[in-house]
Design a protein around this nucleic acid. Structure first.
Length: 287
DNA sequence: GCGAGAATAT
DNA sequence: TATATTCTCG
């Protein structure tokens, strides 16, 4: 059960939904029409290694200029000045709260594990995760919580902390909730004690470079999306169903794949208990 | 000025 | 509560 220390990364693919199933955050936040209308492709590129990813995906047949999505922007005040302040909708629009799905969490944890505590800083983690739309703040915020979680794990006895005991008293509901989320990740033992990182002595910059070899076998298109948008966004689900039929959206994603992928890893999909229900891994019907 | 980390707010 | 935002510090 703990062999992942050698090939934990080999199971990265399993958690990654297919590109067809995923919707870039930018789209989830902006609505396809709006995004296309404004040529919004992506906010930041997460390539810090060597692939500049020079593949701008402007290959969208965008409607002339009738961007009928002004109501999308709350900051507009309902005035209807869509034509005026829509220069940077991506920036203006408030992103919905990022939901850290187990899959997303796993990426996060994996990234942290590979970086080692030393280099596991928001920026580096973010780069490693290569999730489109994911911001440093997102990672920082989660990292903060994750550290608290780890601290708890260290402070409490593993047995009780492992499952939350139930009547322990030391484990609160928060712990359990956190566990359910974090429990989906392997929680590398290297974590616990600061300073026990393994062979990752690289600096942040180097980490970025490693990033390439790190993913060298699974850098696929899907690499750049959030795990699974909860169906909080009703409209989202509809989009997804449509998108799964539209292959040409791949470019919007992110880093281009290196070629092959699937390291041949099809392991268990760790379900986070009830979390998988919330997960809403697009019921696109295909899967 | 940038980024990390913690505190605070929503 | 979970995540975002803000603040402080290096």
């Amino acid at each position: 059960m703990r062999e992942e220390e050698s090939n934990w990364f080999a199971r990265w693919d399993e958690q990654l939904p297919s590109p067809e199933e995923l919707t870039p955050l930018s789209q989830t936040l902006i609505t396809p029409d709006l995004a296309v209308a404004f040529d919004i492709h992506r906010r930041r590129s997460s390539n810090a290694g060597g692939s500049p990813d020079p593949s701008p995906p402007p290959a969208h047949s965008l409607p002339p200029s009738s961007a009928a999505a002004s109501d999308l922007d709350p900051s507009d005040g309902g005035g209807g000045s869509a034509a005026g302040g829509v220069d940077e909708p991506a920036r203006t629009l408030k992103r919905p709260r990022l939901v850290w799905t187990p899959q997303l969490h796993k990426r996060f944890v994996d990234a942290v594990a590979h970086l080692g505590i030393k280099n596991a800083v928001p920026k580096t983690i973010m780069q490693l995760m290569s999730v489109d739309g994911l911001t440093r703040e997102n990672v920082a915020s989660h990292l903060q919580k994750y550290r608290l979680y780890l601290k708890r794990m260290q402070g409490l006895s593993p047995s009780s902390a492992a499952v939350g005991g139930g009547g322990g008293g030391s484990v609160s509901a928060a712990d359990m909730a956190t566990e359910h989320l974090f429990a989906s990740a392997p929680l590398p033992h290297q974590f616990m004690p600061y300073g026990h990182q393994h062979h990752h002595q690289m600096a942040a910059a180097a980490a970025a470079a490693q990033h390439q070899q790190y993913f060298h076998h699974q850098q696929r298109q899907q690499m750049g999306h959030f795990g699974s948008p909860p169906d909080h966004y009703g409209f989202l689900r509809q989009q997804q169903q449509q998108q799964q039929q539209q292959p040409p959206m791949a470019s919007l994603g992110v880093n281009r794949m290196v070629g092959t992928n699937l390291g041949g890893c099809s392991e268990d999909l760790e379900e986070t208990g009830s979390a998988r229900k919330v997960l809403t891994l697009f019921p696109t019907g295909d899967e």
